[in-house]
Design a binder for these strands. Sequence first.
DNA 1: CGTGCTTTTGAATAGTATCAAGGCCGGTGG
DNA 2: CCACCGGCCTTGATACTATTCAAAAGCACG
Lengths: 241, 241
Amino acid sequence: MLDNTYVNCINCNNQCFLKLCKPKYLKEMPTKQYIVKKDEYLFKEGEPVTEMYFIQHGKVKVVSTGLDGKRQIVRLAGNGQIVGHRGYKNEIYSISAIALEESRVCSINNDTLYGIMKKNFDLVHNLMMFYSLELRKSELRAKCFAQMTVKEKVAYALLYIKETFGLNNDNSLNVAIYRKEIGEIAGTNDEQVSRALIELRKEKLIEISKRKIIINNYEKLKTSLDRYGILFEENNILSCF
Amino acid sequence: MLDNTYVNCINCNNQCFLKLCKPKYLKEMPTKQYIVKKDEYLFKEGEPVTEMYFIQHGKVKVVSTGLDGKRQIVRLAGNGQIVGHRGYKNEIYSISAIALEESRVCSINNDTLYGIMKKNFDLVHNLMMFYSLELRKSELRAKCFAQMTVKEKVAYALLYIKETFGLNNDNSLNVAIYRKEIGEIAGTNDEQVSRALIELRKEKLIEISKRKIIINNYEKLKTSLDRYGILFEENNILSCF
DNA sequence: CGTGCTTTTGAATAGTATCAAGGCCGGTGG
DNA sequence: CCACCGGCCTTGATACTATTCAAAAGCACG
């Protein structure tokens, strides 16, 4: 992580939760900005999370590692999203955030943010809505992990990646991601992901071209998981901006 | 569900999120109160969730059913807790809330609540904190489902039930719950739960006495899941009252 | 003291994880 | 330009775990 520099939010053109603050507060917001390179940590398991991070531009994975070294990708976050939940009393909880590619990230100290919240209703209200939506998504994910087959979990992971990071013009996932990482989302290993992807290719739902995964038939891929309920919704809380 | 009656929150002695509102608003809060019998629905899959529910006294399970009829218990909620997340624009999402035992529940219309929020910072702030904490718990649960063995998942389910509903004086779980329901939390079936419980009894972690499940050695049961991180914390967001 | 529901137990089956080996590809250095 | 190397992906075989089906035993309630 490069030396952080303080930036002035009032001059920033990015869509960001902080923009919900009144100009008076926005002007004096003590926001730090970093450039994080691929594979660098925003914060690391075992350290207290004292800052809240806003992704200006880039891609980040939030991971949790068991003692046995088995990793789980708990969440993906892209442009405009939040990482490093405001913890209860800055307590330690074992989660890391790692950049999937070079990203521009802003952060603000939790206690400072707390103070600012008291004077900015819209910020708190939108954060509440954001968490409420993320909670629902997370609850549905828990259900999926409990019931899906490996192939379905992989399909879910692809759709989740697509939802978070979007597609390129050729319908390929807009992120360089390994089989192993897809497995860390789906809760399986790289071999199983490989097998599942090939199955999905046989069914013409996706295409695999070198390192790219192309979502050939998005609708069919999505409906193949219909029996688990509405997993992916159009409306993003950020659309409220 | 019995005919609902409007109650006056200002006279209510229960700990409840609504209590965070200023007296002025509390006095005129259009809160409805119901008595819900065992196995009755608070709300049902397929219907829009237009109300937010506060459990005054009782026990509720939040379930989600796949098209194949396989159920998943997504959350348990006890005294003082919230059910029926304020959805984004009252949209339908396929989740039901069912009483595990006779319960006293209050509800308030989402839109009304939204209006009240605007004037009650503390309410919004605490709701945000509540969701933030629930989200973290849910994210950890997703990780657990992806990595735990069936026996571990059952141990997790027991601890989750204990955390939510507490223990009786004899250390038995303070709720009448079927093997099938434990399976719906753990993401498995009743036979596996039965086998897992008997295994845990052999290890002297629990005792099974008729329909009661006694947590013999809470600490050991908890540490048996240590490798998955801190799953159960003492501090409850409600302690902020 | 049946009757119906829950729990337990056993056996067969299906699904998944793991281990091992080989193939593919891009990058590097001769 | 080509050979080599290392990282990633694919494939097959095997072992293990969990699910499913079937049946019996236990329990609660009228």
